[in-house]
């Protein structure tokens, strides 16, 4: 099992953070363009499913998968979005995405008065804590073969 990469967006679509661990293919566009494309896709998915759903939703969009990867999505009521791409073997990791929000984003960004909201997170501490948290996940390591 493996974790490919992780995006954090704010409620206006700005990419606050991007990390990459095991990514074999790049999108073929600049990172700035990629963030916009990713956010646009997520925004459209939210609107798409809210119309498609036959009944009222609570959590809304949870994940999607293709033949090669699975995208996990978690959104807080304040509009912060945590997006993690993993391989297909990873099940529901809603709690993990919530932990990234509450133990790492809130602790090292929201509680840091020098971190300004709504722009790329510069904090070295946040970066390191996030990296070691993700590396410690049971599904992080890439399985040989």
């Amino acid at each position: 099992m493996t974790v490919h990469n992780l995006y954090i967006f704010d409620r206006n679509g700005a990419c606050l953070h991007y990390s990459e661990w095991n990514r074999k293919k790049q999108a073929g566009i600049s990172k700035e363009e990629e963030y916009k494309l990713m956010y646009g896709m997520l925004f459209s998915i939210r609107s798409f499913i809210s119309k498609m759903s036959p009944v009222d939703m609570k959590d809304g969009f949870l994940s999607f998968q293709t033949s090669k990867y699975k995208l996990h999505y978690y959104e807080t009521p304040t509009g912060l979005k945590v997006v993690m791409n993993t391989d297909l073997g990873v099940g529901n990791i809603r709690d993990v995405l919530h932990q990234i929000y509450s133990y790492i984003y809130v602790e090292y960004v929201v509680k840091n008065p020098l971190c300004s909201m709504n722009e790329t997170i510069q904090s070295e501490l946040f970066r390191n804590k996030l990296d070691s948290f993700v590396r410690g996940l049971p599904f992080f390591s890439a399985r040989a073969g």
Partner: peptide, 13 residues
């Protein structure tokens, strides 16, 4: 993030 991927095959809510 992986080469040779299809489009969305399953979307879960």
């Amino acid at each position: 993030p992986e080469p040779g991927s299809s489009g969305i095959e399953m979307l879960e809510t």
